[in-house]
Structure formats: C-alpha cells, structure tokens
Design a protein around this nucleic acid. Structure first.
Lengths: 272, 272
DNA sequence: AAAATAGTGTCTGTGAGACACTATGGA
DNA sequence: TCCATAGTGTCTCACAGACACTATTTT
C-alpha cells in the first residue's frame, strides 16, 4: 500500500534538502546614461557630443555596527536581494524595484543579460546574481544626484570605470553589460530609450555615435539618407497630419524635422 | 535615501536569513536537432528537406518509492538540480552535464537564454530554472535513442510539441527556446552547429530554410550568389590549396564545392 | 536521353559611398 | 555677413531580385 495517496501528500514530503541550495538570490543593475563628451570635436563628424556613462555606488567602509564591511570602500553595481513580493519572486521585478529606488523613475528600459552563479564569487556563500542593464535619459539621473548626498552614488564614463577598485566580480559584470548594450544598440531599437519620444535625426545619430561604431551612423550623409527610409522610424505628424518641426532653441538657428520610432522591432540578418 | 544604503549594507553583511532563499536551483535544456521533413516538396525552392525538432522526456507517473510523481506523465525538458562541483556551482556547467547524460556527447553548442524564477512556477517551492538550448546534429540523438529504451525520450517537431501535455511552465520555456534559436540562426553563425565542419552551400541553405524565413535564403540564386562572398564563410582547401569538392554519394550525381565557417562572428546591424 | 543535384547568367532597378553643397535664422 | 545647426544633391559603381539557363554524372 502506498504511503501517500495523492500528489499533494507526496509534495509535502518532497525532500529538497538533498541538494545544496543557494544562500542568496540577488539582482544587480548596470544603469547607463549619456553625459556630455569632454572630447567632442565639432569638426570630426564621427565624434559624438555624448559619452556613455554608468552609475555605481560606493560601498561603505564600515557597516551599521561599525565593523569592516565586506568589499568595503569599493565601487559596485546597485543591487539587492530578490524577495517574494505579492506572491511573485522574480529577479526581474527585483531589478525594477532597485532601479526605482536608485533613480526614482519607472517604466524605463530594463533588460536581463546574464547570470553569475559560480560558487566563490561572493565570500558570504553561494550567492547568485541576475545581471540587468537599464537605460535612463540623463536628466533623470542628474535629478537623483542633486536630491541625494551623492558622495556614494556617481556616474563614470566607461573609460573611467575600469580604473576603479570594483567589488566582487562586478568588473566582469560591467564588461558584459557594456558588450550587451552595444550589441543591442546595433541590433535593436533600444536607442529610443536614450531619447524623447519625438527626436531630431541628428540627436539619434549623436546617441548612436556615443555607443557604437557603425559605417552608416559614422557617415552623416549616409545616415540622413537612410534613416528616414527605415521601417521602424517615421516622421512625427501633428493633428493636421503635417510634419512636426522643432522650434529653434539655444544655439540652434533653424527648425528641424521630428521623427519617432514605430512599434515594430526589426530583426537584422547576417544573410542579407 | 543615504540611510537606505547603509541599511542595505548591514542586511547584506549580517543577516542574509532575513530574505527567503530559493529552495532549488536547476538547469533545463532544450535540445534541438533536425529531422527529415515529411512535407518536403522538391519543386518548391523554399521547402526544406529538414524540420526542426526538440527532445523531450516523459516524466514517470510514479516516483522511485511508488508514489505519484509531481507533474507525472507529462512531457518536460531534460534538466536537473545544479550542484557545486569541483568548487564551482554554475547552471551552465550543470546544463553541460545534463546534455552529456542525455545525448552522450560533449562539446556541442549550448547557450543560456533565460531565467524562470517566479514563485509558484513549481509546486515544490521557490525553484529557479536556468534555461538553455543546445544544437545537436541528428545522428547523435538517433544513437542515443537506439541505445536507450526510448519510451521516455522522444523527438517532436515544433508543430507536434505544442499538442502535448507539458509539465510545469515548460511550454513557455519551449516557446522562448524556439524564438531564441530562430533569432540566433538569423543573427549569428549558430547554423554551423547543425553541419559538419565542411559543408555544401545547399546543405547550409537547407538547414537555414528549416528554421528561419529569410529573403536571401529563400531564393536559391540569391543565396548562391551571396553566401560565398560573406566574410564568415570560405572555401575549404586541401593541402595543395585547391578547393575541395565532395565525391558524389547516394542519388547525388555531381561533385560540389565544400565551404567552412571562419572564426569571425558577424554583427548584423539595423542601421545598414 | 532523362533525371537528379548543384549550381550560373543576365537583366534591370535600387541603393551605397564619397563628398560637396544648401537652407534657416540670429548676432 | 558670418556662424552654427541641420540637413540635401549628385555622381558612380555595385549589388539585389527575378527567373531562366547550364553543368556533371548515373541509369
């Protein structure tokens, strides 16, 4: 005669302890934005006005009880433990919450790009990290830095970042995050997340120049010829169906056409 | 906000037990191969000789103790719990081991494509699954099926697979695996994993036709014109530097040139 | 000669690459 | 009138799409 008479009873007696389970399950998030490029050369049409930057936090040297902190005084990606919230527990939700806490904004692009789970990556035990990147328009991060004390939150350009002392295996995660965001900028329309809904072609080109190295993007005339014919980009129209243009602002002396991204996501192919 | 950081440091440092930790950490693997296409129409140049297929296992109705098994009698992806082996614990290693157990082969293409970690996806607790796909040339799986009793291991074409009763959230994982492999076939040279090192262009075309829908691949003359000029494909040469050709085999009446993949990985762009 | 496999050839229009030129409006 | 910004125009050569044709060997 069977010991249990239903799946439910068997379930209660299921022995998960046969396997070692992780001691922690976390989400880390690489928050990217664009900063003004110090090396911008107006004469070089491949030079961008922007520069890709990453937000890091400085780990406290001492913890709340005054004891030396693990990986203290090093720079790290913002992150935290994943909890089961509202009957769900997912690293993606956790990353969204973390982003909200760090930048006070919702609804920006966030993408999972890797899992870091080798035993030994964290001295505290077997701690698994889900790595994400987020793209945040510059203004939002500036707001956040002004509101905060900001000593322990800082933006670094990707050249600066590798000169820092980085905690845990976050150096590797940061390298992977940069590869991932570059790849996505080349192969998807993520660039839209750095831009307002309606943008000038030159703005879009500046954003792309800052991150990727692409023949068409590098050549101004090629980009302006090609971009309007891409089927994921269209002209912004006003209520009367007329093309929208900018008002001249700042040093900009002439109006320019506005464009927006279509909903469709292109799939580039190596075969054509 | 500044206070928040130090609180979080303290939590990370001293009391990981405040957070619920996962009850299980597993790897699942979608093993793809190609089968002969029953619907092949020689007259239609878009029709492929092959058909994408997925290996599934049938979960036993009763467990080792004779009790009803969780999600018993349903089809599932092969997988298992991740253990710390040789001082490492990683889902990727675990997936490789699982693939070795299921197909007795090493060194094939295996790729992580997702994490499934919502609480409630498995009745046994908070069990996290790392999903991978693998590409295995047909012959290897046929060997494995012959050696095994094979009742519980079966290949299904992707049309057949969604008619089955699928365990856990594996239906979703399978959908994502198929999307992922299709995308990679379009954007990377993974197709090489279905082929021998040296192959005929028509063989490559048949493999691509079976999985993706691409203008150039669909059009025979376009593919034969384009493929030899792609910089990740080159002619196979013998020791004297002469192009290699096949011996006619089977119903094939004429020799054909052999090609191989270069080491370089192309990066397709949506901007050109 | 026919069948099967594995490719080529040819035509026409679209598009890429290079780079010089134009348009707008304010100081 | 000059500058800065944001684009266009023009030229040539190459490649893409359509689809018919060829080439090699066995039966």
């Amino acid at each position: 005669m069977a010991k249990y008479h239903s799946e439910e009873e068997a379930l209660k007696n299921y022995d998960t302890s046969k396997y070692r389970t992780p001691e922690g399950y976390t989400s880390d998030i690489a928050i990217f934005t664009l900063l003004p490029n110090e090396q911008y050369k107006a004469k070089d049409e491949k030079s961008s006005k922007y520069c890709l930057a990453l937000m890091l936090i400085k780990r406290a040297g001492l913890d709340a009880e005054g004891e030396p902190n693990i990986e203290g005084n090093k720079w790290a990606l913002p992150g935290g433990f994943t909890q089961i919230e509202g009957d769900k527990g997912s690293a993606f939700e956790s990353a969204k919450r973390e982003l909200l806490e760090e930048t006070s904004i919702k609804g920006v692009h966030i993408k999972h790009f890797g899992v870091y789970d080798t035993f030994g990556r964290d001295k505290r035990g077997w701690i698994i990290s889900n790595a994400h990147y987020a793209i945040v328009p510059e203004q939002h991060i500036q707001d956040r830095r002004a509101a905060d004390d900001a000593a322990e939150v800082q933006l670094f350009t990707i050249d600066e970042v590798f000169k820092l002392d980085i905690a845990f295996d976050h150096r590797q995660i940061i390298e992977d995050a940069i590869s991932s965001v570059k790849k996505d900028m080349q192969q998807t329309t993520v660039a839209k997340n750095f831009l307002p809904v309606e943008f000038k072609l030159e703005e879009l080109r500046q954003v792309l120049l800052a991150v990727i190295d692409d023949n068409v993007v590098n050549t101004k005339s090629a980009f302006f010829r090609k971009a309007p014919s891409l089927d994921f980009i269209e002209e912004a129209k006003d209520a009367q169906g007329n093309p929208k243009v900018t008002e001249p602002t700042g040093k900009n002396k002439r109006p320019s056409k506005l464009y927006k991204f279509e909903e469709v996501e292109p799939v580039p192919s190596i075969w054509n």
